[in-house]
Design a protein around this nucleic acid. Structure first.
Lengths: 365, 365
DNA sequence: GCCATAAATTGAAACCTTTCAATCAGGCTC
DNA sequence: GAGCCTGATTGAAAGGTTTCAATTTATGGC
């Protein structure tokens, strides 16, 4: 209750109970108080204020209350940069994906956010647009910010920069990407298997001329789905070169799919596999505009099973990936990766994809 | 070329050209160098190193090169928290949305990112899930981080906390929310008009019993769309109470829409307006499962015109919002808001929504 | 009431950068 | 060669927090 008089009695201490300390700017604006101000107002020392904030159990009840009051009445807001400077790191995690606007990443992101927020970690998101320089720039900036770690779908082909990051103490988890050497943590869905599933499905329906709308093969996902598709064809005793028409889309979204289909001339394949549902959506649009019926004239398979895939017209046959889980698993892996300083075995969590048969595919011939 | 000998000749300076300064940890790991180390290695002072980094034009060519070499060979990485402490702010912007996984926000986000990245600003994203406490927590953390500003779709009803933030020097822009008093910058789409458009459309098709799957009316968007809808009904000379069935969905996504439809028993309305396309997607799913044909038995109108709306089965009639623009405009507004310290007139950028008629709506009766 | 101990508090160093007034070197003019 | 000027460099302060050894206060036993 009664504020006790300034504790020690050396009268020359000027910093007791001075309501608005610091400068007295002409414009009474944008004034920020620091712990020193709080300490002065509460008639204590900065060390104690710090303790109230970080180790309240060390501070006597009465003092604690006084400090808390001072904090409130001054509107004190902790200065995180200072905290982070002292701590040597920021409680944040960088997430570098190809494009935040892609619903696939969006769900992955959400999974990661939920897990990381529970640990008090902030998420800094960056779209690399698959551009190596943009990615490099973001990585540098994130490292400067001293984030705890980075979840990344790398655009770069050679991952050594990421391993160097790891060596410099950042947690690194590859998102939707495996890494053969096991030098980095990774979460991924088995893309080879996914491609195989898609291929098997169409082959079993009798298709023998299949277009694959793929992204740049520099992206591991794309390369692996292609590999799986090839495997399916070979296992069926057929010749990939004869069966597959491989087309690289200009961009991994609906526009890209649309453009790719528009450019096909000559004889259409009897089935199309798209590297993701967005591309499939674009393809669907293009088919509709050209008056080509799906699945009557051409079968279509997507990849991802995004939220709306089931509701397309026709509902899209696709390969489902556990997106939210993926993000959550990545966050989880990151947490163990960065906690255990040394004896941590870089773990690869691989989820299995699932073929979801809907109405965009039909028997051929 | 030839490294000149240590400049000044006071021999007692220990910090000239010492290859690995600082501590010598047993495990040669996780060593971080600071500008002092760089300076030592380059045989110069920290002030000069700083200048090379921030004002290269002040430093002599030869020195600059030497410092750059030292930086590279030491693998020096600037400590952003220290920079930010000194500067009093972090070059970052917080974005607080209801849910990053919502494709609407996702595109808005991308618009903002593109504009802000151009200014070297990072994006810290937070999903508030429309929970006031979560939102408050994020706002506090962001302020502690001393971000330049905040783009937010507020969950809170009373915006004074945001104005206080502004008064404390942060740029604040409301995302997808207008603010009558003009005390804050805002970008929004005219939601009243959007609701009106949806209502007019259905009324003109002869519908006289319309369900509105809305979110909590604490969300301004929801309240305003409702208002517009009411207005449309009144302008048509009808009684809102008689025409409208208002249902609050448990969550603003496909699950919510599905649940809401499942719960309707008794006589169905002849048309349903959903507060966003995701809810509409869920509704569509529920109708399909119940064997109710859209638009033959019930007309359905969405809101947002997300990427896939045109491809649903049937293609969804909806209200289009310029999402990417919205994010970009918000970023733009934020930039001017935070630059001009005082004489900035808080601006409200309002985009007009557009009715997109597709096949999920049909004449009734 | 005194002493030993536990509990509470303090003050200063450390974290790393940027800024700025002050210093220094070198070139120029007269 | 003295004096001046410019351009380059320096050193120290400041920014706000946390930590930790040291100090002060309170508690309890006797």
């Amino acid at each position: 209750m009664d504020r006790p008089p300034p504790p020690r009695d050396q009268g020359d201490r000027e910093k007791v109970n001075t309501p608005p300390p610091k400068s007295t700017p002409a414009t009474g604006k944008r004034q920020r108080y620091g712990m020193a101000d709080v300490a002065a107002r509460a008639g204590t020392s900065v060390g104690t204020v710090s303790n109230v904030l970080n180790h309240p159990e060390l501070v006597a009840e009465k003092t604690r209350r006084r400090v808390r009051e001072a904090i409130d009445s001054l509107g004190f807001v902790r200065n995180a940069p200072a905290v982070n400077l002292r701590a040597g790191s920021s409680p944040a995690v960088g997430v570098v994906v190809l494009d935040i606007a892609n619903p696939f990443f969006t769900e992955v992101l959400r999974g990661a956010e939920d897990r990381l927020a529970a640990e008090g970690l902030l998420l800094i998101v960056c779209s690399s647009d698959d551009a190596v320089d943009k990615e490099g720039h973001y990585l540098r900036v994130l490292e400067e910010h001293r984030v705890h770690g980075i979840l990344i779908t790398p655009a770069m082909a050679d991952l050594t920069p990421l391993m160097e990051l790891r060596d410099r103490g950042l947690g690194v988890v590859l998102l939707d990407r495996t890494e053969a050497d096991g030098k980095l943590c990774a979460v991924a869905v088995d893309d080879v298997r996914g491609g195989e599933l898609a291929g098997q499905h169409l082959l079993s329906l009798g298709h023998r001329r299949i277009a694959f709308l793929n992204g740049p093969s520099s992206l591991r996902q794309c390369a692996e789905r292609r590999k799986g598709l090839h495997r399916a064809v070979i296992l069926a005793g057929l010749d990939p070169a004869a069966v597959l028409v491989e087309i690289t889309v200009p961009s991994l979204n609906a526009r890209g799919g649309e453009a790719a289909i528009e450019e096909i001339d000559g004889d259409l394949p009897t089935a199309v596999i798209c590297v993701n549902d967005l591309v499939a959506l674009g393809a669907l649009r293009a088919f509709e505009q050209r008056g080509i019926a799906v699945p009557d004239q051409v079968s279509l398979v997507g990849y991802d099973d995004v939220d709306f895939a089931a509701m397309l017209s026709p509902p899209l046959t696709t390969i489902r990936q556990p997106k939210y889980q993926l993000g959550k698993a990545a966050a989880e892996l990151f947490l163990t990766d960065s906690r255990q300083d040394d004896k941590h075995w870089h773990q690869q969590t691989v989820f299995q994809p699932e073929l979801i048969v809907r109405e965009s595919t039909a028997r051929f011939g």
